[in-house]
Design a protein around this nucleic acid. Structure first.
Lengths: 191, 191
DNA sequence: TATTTTATGAGACTACAGTATCAGTTGCGT
DNA sequence: ACGCAACTGATACTGTAGTCTCATAAAATA
């Protein structure tokens, strides 16, 4: 039952996000204060914090759930790097072009602003462990096996670099770039 | 000419660092305030900031210069990953066991506390670019070639994971773990 | 329409990082 | 011994994130 209240809340939430990202784009993340965001979104500071407990929460949402799900669904035969590659593929395939470009702005900050990198990193041990467990299941290794961790480290390493290229230049096709990078890793990083 | 003044300054600096890390160990990085550190080191808050412009500066020093130098000195024939592996080897070989264990405490924080990871990351684009240029020189690729970046991403990815294992468990032989991880990457991440 | 529940705004408050000022002290060269 | 330069402490100040309280307004419910 989406009453008026619910709809208003959604609108407020969207206004805050929209104005926040506009200000971030114009002045940068840390140079934008919560007060400015609240003012631009026409809510009080208190209300801002009711919607987003911290400023970081504007940018660090759980974006990797689809990836984890996709990874679980990969065919069992594939090698770990291939499975990760496939997971990224299907995770991106589940998004519309609009969602991808909309998400891109957010990712630019998440990948670029150190505070936000930190915020995301704070959540990353959980992601790494989860991925490690899935890959461990698939291969029969224990999840703390250093080979598994090397696969994860190397994969996320190349993905991060591709992600940065994407963040720096929105003309880059992020998903394709990520796929190519993982393919490169898959084939042994040949030159 | 190490006059009394110089020596005092060194002692003060050491006291600040020592007390800071003791408090970090006991209560964590962000739960430790500059005031507490200053008090423990028996200096004023103002003096603390004279020695370390920001709290982060306690932990984020330029630790990768030796690595870059070592990378430049690698034999020209080696593949990029091998060159990086060799560079880590020689960079660690240049440190005494005491230096390594002393540095370990710092690394634990630098690798574990998100704010510090971020602070280090803030300096990392320069490092990445530098490494990219060196590797590009060695291989003839342009430095922004995505293959070069993949090599860097993958290498630093596995190194980061090894580093984390080291940070979590000081019994781990960090340098050896890093070497093994890069060797694993070198040989195609075989399981 | 009357009552209850919930969102909001206003504003005071805390905590902490980092800055600025200024006076007092201490080592240093003469 | 003396005066200078550097180091220090005390202290007040700024900016910003995040908390708390309470009164008001607006939506839901009966």
């Amino acid at each position: 039952m989406s009453g008026l209240r619910e709809r208003k809340k959604v609108k407020t939430r969207e206004a805050i996000l929209r104005e926040a990202f506009r200000l971030f784009r114009e002045h940068g993340y840390s140079a934008t204060t919560v007060e400015q965001i609240a003012e631009a979104a026409e809510v009080s500071r208190a209300t801002f914090f009711r919607y987003f407990p911290t400023k970081e929460d504007l940018v660090t949402l759980d974006r990797f759930l689809p990836l984890v799900e996709a990874l679980k669904a990969q065919p069992p035969g594939a090698a770990p790097v291939s499975a990760l590659r496939g997971a990224f593929r299907t995770a991106f395939a589940g998004l519309s072009a609009e969602e991808i470009t909309a998400g891109h702005a957010r990712e630019v900050f998440a990948a670029t602003v150190p505070e936000l990198v930190a915020a995301n990193l704070r959540k990353s041990p959980g992601l790494i462990r989860e991925v490690a467990e899935i890959l461990a299941d698939r291969t029969g290794c224990p999840p703390d096996d250093s080979r598994i961790q090397n696969v994860i480290g190397a994969s996320f390493g190349v993905v991060a670099m591709a992600w940065l290229r994407w963040a720096r230049d929105s003309a880059v096709d992020g998903p394709a770039e990520i796929d190519r990078s993982l393919a490169h890793l898959e084939s042994g990083l040949t030159l």
